[in-house]
Structures are given as structure tokens and as C-alpha cells.
């Protein structure tokens, strides 16, 4: 039995013929499309290392079945910089802020942390309140304990991105 799905991954349309309905979105990305940036830390939605943006919202890719993602738009860590390369070194501002604030050590949870941070900032719920940022980032575990840097990075990226938006609005108004 084969299941054909079509989805956009980092802006590229991928036609996938799945030989198995049990394939998760995470395993599709990692094992079949070889986009290995998204990590598998638990495969149970408990650690957040596999966080991607699915139709603009942050989700645990290990909890989504690939066959259910027909027609979806997926952004992974590999495609993030292309969305907004306004940070240092052509990185997305969240990526750049993670480097600047040492928001990681081993780096394994980092793709998930960054995608989650992008999602959180888009949700617009945390603002510049560190407590709410910590809460909003608490679905992403980090065993190295880089939380202090992660929180600072998210707050800085939030400031940069909000300032950018305000700038655009002013340009639009002008």
C-alpha cells in the first residue's frame, strides 16, 4: 500500500510516496528527506527537540503523522534563515541571538528550541516578560541547562523582530 502526499518543506514542494502509514513527520524529515536538523529526543512529545513550524504553528514533529500532513507547509531549522536572514551572518534573528547569548551547549535540543522560540514570538503572548518567555519555552527540555541563555536570546530576538515589524509598519504608513 502506498500513500502519496504533497507538502511544502522549507518552501520546496515535496511529493512523497509513503510505503507505510506509521511514518511520523519527524521520521519523514530525518530518515526519508534527510533533513536531520530536527532531532529525536523522546519520540513522545515530551522533550521538544523535534519542534518545527507546521502551517505556521510550532508542533512536535514526532507526534504528527506524515500522512496527515498532506498539503501542509512545514518549516524546519534548515529553512529558517531563508525566511528572515536579517540576523548576523545571514541567520534568522533568533538563531543569531542563540549564538550571542550562548543559548545552547551540546546543541541537540537547539533546533527545537529555536523553532519553538520563533513560534512563541509569532504567538505574541510572551512579550518582554522573562517569566512568560520561560513558561512559553518550557515544552523544550535542555539537559545541559542552557535555559538562562535561551531566555535572554528569545527576549533579544523578540525585541529585534518587534522593532523590525514596527519599522515596516512605519514604512507602510509612509
Amino acid at each position: 500500500m502506498s500513500f502519496s502526499i504533497s507538502l511544502s518543506v522549507n518552501g520546496v514542494t515535496r511529493e512523497v510516496a509513503l510505503d507505510d502509514p506509521r511514518v511520523t513527520l519527524l521520521d519523514l524529515l530525518r530518515e526519508r528527506l534527510h533533513l536531520t536538523g530536527s532531532k529525536k529526543g523522546c519520540d513522545r512529545g515530551q522533550c521538544g527537540a523535534c519542534t518545527v513550524l507546521l502551517d505556521g504553528r510550532r508542533v512536535n514533529a514526532c507526534l504528527a503523522l506524515a500522512v496527515a500532513c498532506d498539503g501542509a507547509e512545514v518549516v524546519t531549522i534548515e529553512g529558517l534563515a531563508a525566511q528572515d536572514p536579517s540576523g548576523a551572518d545571514g541567520l534568522h534573528p533568533v538563531q543569531a541571538a542563540f549564538i550571542a547569548h550562548d543559548g545552547f551547549q551540546c546543541g541537540f535540543c537547539t533546533p527545537g528550541q529555536i523553532m519553538s522560540a520563533v513560534g512563541l514570538i509569532r504567538e505574541g503572548q510572551a512579550g518582554d516578560d522573562p517569566e512568560r518567555v520561560r513558561e512559553g519555552m518550557s515544552g523544550n527540555l535542555c539537559r545541559c541547562g542552557a535555559y538562562a541563555g535561551i531566555t535572554e536570546a528569545v527576549l533579544e530576538a523578540q525585541r529585534v523582530l518587534t522593532a523590525g515589524d514596527a519599522g515596516h509598519e512605519q514604512e507602510d504608513a509612509a
Partner: peptide, 21 residues
């Protein structure tokens, strides 16, 4: 200094064991 492997780690390009195919 910031981490020399930082760029690889924030872009998903740092290759951990299970990332090899």
C-alpha cells in the same frame, strides 16, 4: 568568544551520530 560550532548548531547542520544516512 562565542562558540566556533555555533553556526552549525543553530542551523541544524551540526551532524550528530543518528544524522548520518
Amino acid at each position: 568568544l562565542t562558540r566556533r560550532d555555533g553556526l552549525l548548531k543553530v542551523t541544524g547542520a551540526a551532524r550528530y551520530a543518528a544524522d548520518n544516512n
